[in-house]
């Protein structure tokens, strides 16, 4: 299957699988998911062929998260090491969060002290969830995270849902607020945090950076309606993930509205018929 310019018409999705030749390597450069052998560009993963100008690449339909600088990810601390933490971000290797990349209590300009190194678990310990941004990469491809913004840091007041990373598209903002008082953080690595809505003014305030609050493990009081909403949203995300539907904020809003209109209980969403109906309804609206 040798392709040339005409085959890459707008909107067509060409599929391929490992070992299939795509085109001649004289005309095109190879990108991710391909390799060159014998003057041909050959696919190495199963997925869709993407072409940008003279660059051919294959995007795997289902793979581990492939990080890029500036991505927002939700991760879980797996290890505490000297001056840094290892974070599981559903990628090929665990990410690294350096002590110098987190906000230390007492103001963002505070210098790192020796005692901080000895008390790393007062900030993050094994099992903690956090939201961070990919700062850079090390030479071996390990990503380095930072939480140097007040929107980032330890997560609480909610629960984690996992979907395949391919379903999270790059959006303008990955912090979504739903009208029912539920906040969503869509990590590009497929980890989604569903929590009680935190008011904006409680977030900001650089002068009064309260370590107690930011690194606390204690949840706020959450009322029953919000808890139910969190469960409902979690079930919706699971359904969309199971039907392999990419997640965007508008889609989630539509889905939530539909679910509320149904007037069913939260657990009705676990029923596969209701799940199918949800996906068709949402697809129809878009």
């Amino acid at each position: 299957m040798v392709l040339d310019d005409e085959d890459f018409a707008e909107g067509t999705q060409k599929l391929t699988c490992p070992g299939e030749p795509i085109t001649s390597s004289h005309a095109f450069m190879r990108g991710h998911g391909t390799y060159v052998d014998n003057e041909e560009v050959i696919a190495s993963v199963a997925g869709t062929i993407e072409r940008v100008n003279k660059l051919i690449s294959v995007r795997a339909i289902r793979a581990r998260y492939s990080p890029e600088v500036g991505d927002l990810v939700v991760g879980r601390i797996t290890e505490v090491q000297p001056r840094r933490w290892k974070v599981d971000a559903n990628s090929r290797q665990d990410a690294v969060l350096m002590l110098s990349s987190v906000n230390l209590p007492g103001g963002v300009q505070r210098r790192k002290l020796e005692s901080d190194e000895l008390q790393m678990r007062t900030f993050f310990e094994e099992g903690d969830l956090l939201v961070a941004e990919v700062q850079a990469f090390f030479a071996d491809g390990v990503m380095s995270l930072h939480t140097r913004s007040l929107r980032y840091g330890k997560l609480r007041n909610g629960q984690l849902i996992t979907v395949p990373p391919a379903l999270i598209r790059r959006l303008k903002s990955h912090f979504i607020t739903l009208p029912c008082g539920v906040d969503l953080i869509l990590g590009l690595n497929g980890y989604i945090w569903v929590s009680k809505h935190l008011k904006q003014n409680e977030q900001e305030g650089e002068d009064a950076f309260d370590a107690e609050a930011v690194y606390s493990n204690r949840n706020d009081d959450i009322d029953d309606a919000t808890r139910a909403a969190i469960s409902r949203v979690s079930n919706i995300i699971r359904i969309l993930g199971a039907h392999f539907v990419p997640l965007t904020d508008t889609l989630l809003l539509d889905a939530y509205e539909w679910a509320v209109e149904q007037e069913g209980g939260v657990k009705d969403l676990l029923n596969s018929d209701i799940g199918d109906a949800l996906v068709s309804a949402v697809a129809a609206r878009s």
Binding site: H32, A166, V245, S286
Partner: peptide, 27 residues
């Protein structure tokens, strides 16, 4: 299987052409 997943993804999206272009240029 790839085609099934691609169709499922296509059913829910509204078209994300531009983002892909920006991403893949960084090779």
């Amino acid at each position: 299987r790839t085609s099934k997943l691609v169709d499922a993804m296509g059913a829910g999206t509204k078209g994300t052409g531009e983002e892909d272009v920006e991403r893949d240029v960084l090779m």
